[in-house]
Computed example of a mutant assay.
Amino acid sequence: MPPRPRGATQAPRLSLQPPQNVAVIMEPHLLDGDNREGEHYERLALDGQELAGITLQECVLEGVSMNDTELRGARFIECAFEDLFAPVLRASRSSWRETFLHSTRWGSAELYDSRFDRVHLDGGKLDYVNLRSSRVTDVLLTGCIIGELDLTGAKATRVALRDCTVGTLTLDGAQLADVDLRTSSFRSINGLDGLRGATVDEYQLQVLAPYLAERMGLRIEG
């Protein structure tokens, strides 16, 4: 393998594998603080339940609704989500590790003070994703439509947004390293100083140029 060019943006380090030999659970009774492993939940409604501190490891969740479910401090390890539905997702201080999410539909996702490690979010529509003060490492987003992605005060390392459409990207106080924004579009970006450590393509740079010039107090005259 040829050496990586000096200064090239590092891609997220992902090697996700789907959970194997999971047991289908028809009517699970999940409680806050539970530790469940190797289970498959399908077409399950967990709306409004108190599941703070729950741990799911090597589990598959397919067509599960978590609207207004209390998931504060929850841990998802080596899990796979398909069609996760939550107009209101309450998962502050949660942990997501080596997990794949496909076709996610979130309204307001309260994920502040959380940790995302080796996570792939593929497709889906998310209105507001609050990752304030979170640690996001080796995360890939592909083909997502996001109304607002709030990374205020977050630490993001080896994160890539590919073919995503984002309304507002908020980066006030963010610390970015190897964050790849190429191929994605943004209507507006708040906290331009937080872009340090990000990679953009030539078209994105042209779009950003007037805002960067204004930030630096440059006058542009033809």
Rank of each mutant, 00 (worst) to 15 (best):
N67V: 10
F186G: 11
Q206A: 13
I54M: 04
V88T: 14
C164Y: 08
R6S: 08
E70Y: 10
P12W: 10
E62G: 02
L126C: 11
P5E: 12
R219M: 10
A91Q: 09
A23Q: 15
L121A: 04
S103G: 01
L31V: 08
L205Y: 02
N67S: 14
A174R: 07
G63N: 11
R158P: 03
F76M: 12
V159D: 06
M216A: 15
D193S: 02
T183L: 04
R215E: 13
A109W: 11
V200S: 06
V200H: 07
L212Y: 02
E214Q: 14
R187V: 15
G63I: 13
I54Q: 00
A52W: 00
G147A: 00
D113L: 15
K155N: 05
R187I: 15
E110M: 15
R75M: 12
I77D: 14
A8K: 02
R187T: 15
C79Y: 05
Y41D: 03
E42F: 05
I220P: 00
R90S: 15
L208I: 13
R219D: 12
N130P: 03
P18F: 01
E214L: 08
E70P: 05
F85R: 10
P19D: 07
G63M: 07
F116S: 05
H40S: 10
P12Y: 07
L84K: 07
A156E: 00
L46G: 08
W106F: 06
